[in-house]
Design a protein around this nucleic acid. Structure first.
Lengths: 189, 189
DNA sequence: GCGCTAAAAGCAACATGTTTGCTTTAGTGG
DNA sequence: CCACTAAAGCAAACATGTTGCTTTTAGCGC
């Protein structure tokens, strides 16, 4: 059944099935009863496993939620090609803001940051963003456009957006995202 | 003082003593056994109150930790005056990075972001940073220096630092902080 | 000062969540 | 096909979180 073949490098093992079932249970329950009401015993029952299995594999609820959050924050498609760097970056930034600034998006980000002592899950989120930007910039270079460095875009666009999403939920909108993109492109041309 | 004026019907009374005792217990236990090992019953015992008091006032451990975290993230002194905007900002950014990027600092930031559904605690952190920057910029204006806007400094210095602290703990150092300051000042002069 | 009032803390019983030793099962390689 | 190992199940001990009711105490009018 495709319940068990969802995103697995090596389908077939029992552990793999359990992980898939547990992740799916978290997603379903999160949608049904709200993220804050999800408990380990609840997830276990839905996934058809015992709570101790979850505790032993993930340690606690937070680590599990962090896992699932990173999975959801992974972009599922490449950024669309609009024929020009400014258009590509602008659209990407607007969409990024849209997804991340929603209550659900903020909850995922917080979950990813949490239950993540070594920062590896949060780091993964940053990698996703960097990859997307890299695609956009590489495409622009292919067209002969001059582009800022990936790091510059992260510093000047992603970081300000994320800072405001996390620390100042008010007063953030698409116009702000567009302004950041315009400014970073203005720097290099 | 604002430690006891947060949401208190009876300042100076028993509630205030309880709050102070609980906060102190959290700080002590955090230092002694590590932040992750702190539990509500533990805090209650150390503070000489019953667990139900804590649950009723703060709701859960996370909200309590969030409270304490914001308290600790509040700067205790005004930024020092070094006679020039670039020096003031550079020193401030280095110190900010130093405090925030430490394991303890990161834990406080995460706690502040957490158990904070409405974002008010996290928002407070941002306000602290903005206030400090405002002092530095006002002083520079008083000397006749031209300065960037507070918002600009937040976008170009604070946000990138915070983004890296949270999402990419590796590869962040004082030199990076200094570069950010140099760049933002280069923009306006 | 003296009680009255109401907000907050204490208490205790209860519900829920977490941990752990041991047993059982499923996948792997001989 | 059998033995071996890693992971899951089970159940009981344990810790944490919740709640109704009682008691304390600060603030207030007298």
């Amino acid at each position: 059944m495709d319940l068990m073949s969802r995103q697995m490098a090596r389908p077939g093992g029992r552990s793999a099935r359990v992980q898939a079932a547990v992740h799916e249970a978290v997603r379903e329950l999160g949608a049904e009863v709200g993220r804050d009401a999800v408990t380990v015993p609840m997830v276990a029952q839905r996934a058809g496993v015992t709570p101790s299995t979850i505790y032993r594999r993930w340690g606690d609820l937070q680590a599990l939620l962090s896992d699932v959050a990173v999975e959801r924050l992974r972009p599922d498609t490449e950024p669309k090609d609009h024929g020009a760097l400014s258009a590509d970056l602008t659209v990407w930034a607007e969409q990024f803001l849209d997804e991340m600034a929603s209550p659900a998006g903020r909850a995922y980000i917080r979950d990813a940051l949490l239950g993540d002592p070594d920062g590896s899950n949060a780091g993964q989120c940053s990698v996703y963003a960097a990859e997307q930007i890299d695609v956009v910039l590489a495409r622009a270079k292919g067209r002969g456009e001059s582009t800022p460095a990936v790091e510059t875009v992260i510093d000047r666009v992603v970081a300000p957006l994320m800072y405001r999403i996390l620390f100042r939920p008010d007063g953030i909108d698409a116009a702000y995202a567009r302004r950041l993109v315009t400014e970073v492109l203005g720097t290099t041309g």
